[in-house]
Write a protein that binds this DNA or RNA. Structure first.
Length: 150
DNA sequence: GCCAACGTTGGC
DNA sequence: GCCAACGTTGGC
C-alpha cells in the first residue's frame, strides 16, 4: 500500500464536501505528471487531503482510493472548464481515481509545520514553487504525518 | 526544435 | 492582489 497527497481548493472541493459525498471522482487534473501518479494508484492506497489556495494551506484529512482507472468524465464535457478537445473516447487522455472519505484530522497540519518537519527531498510538497497537485509520499514520511495529526 | 508569449498555480 | 515558477502553445 502506498501513500499519496492530493491538493484541492476548499472553495471548490474541500474535505467537508468529500465527507458529505463519502466518495468522489477526483476530476480536473490536467497535468501529465500528476495524471501518471493517479494511474499508478492502487485500490486501498491512502491519500492525504491537502487544502491549497486558502488562509492556512495544509493537510486536513485522509481518504482512500476506492476505484482505479477512472476516465475523467469532465474531459468530454463541453461545458466543463476541464473540457479537452484534444482527447477522444477511444483514447482518453485524462485518467483519475475515485476516493472515499476516511477522516478529518482533529487539527490541520499547516504547510508551515510540514516545512519545519520535512526537507524538500523527503516531501515534494515543500519543494520551492511546487505546483504538482498529486504526489507520492514515502511511507516513513506518511507515518510521521499521521503522528502529527493526532 | 527553439523560444517568446501566455495562462495557471498557489503561497504570501 | 501580487508575483515567481512552471507548463503549454504556437510562430518561425
Amino acid at each position: 500500500m502506498d501513500y499519496w497527497l492530493m491538493k484541492s481548493e476548499p472553495d471548490v472541493f474541500g474535505i467537508n464536501d468529500l465527507n458529505r459525498q463519502k466518495r468522489a471522482v477526483w476530476d480536473g487534473v490536467r497535468n501529465y505528471q500528476a495524471r501518471n501518479f493517479l494511474r499508478a494508484m492502487k485500490l486501498g492506497d491512502l491519500v492525504f487531503f491537502y487544502h491549497s489556495n486558502t488562509d492556512v494551506p495544509g493537510i486536513v484529512g485522509l481518504c482512500r482510493v476506492s476505484k482505479t482507472g477512472v476516465v475523467d468524465p469532465t474531459q468530454f464535457d463541453h461545458k466543463s472548464r476541464y473540457y479537452d478537445p484534444g482527447s477522444s473516447k477511444d483514447n482518453p487522455r485524462w485518467w483519475t481515481v475515485e476516493v472515499e472519505y476516511l477522516k478529518t484530522f482533529p487539527k490541520q497540519i499547516p504547510l508551515s509545520t510540514l516545512r519545519a518537519k520535512f526537507s524538500p527531498a523527503e516531501l515534494r510538497l515543500v519543494q520551492k514553487a511546487n505546483r504538482l497537485s498529486v504526489m507520492p509520499v514515502a511511507a516513513a514520511v506518511a507515518k510521521k504525518i499521521l503522528a502529527l495529526a493526532k
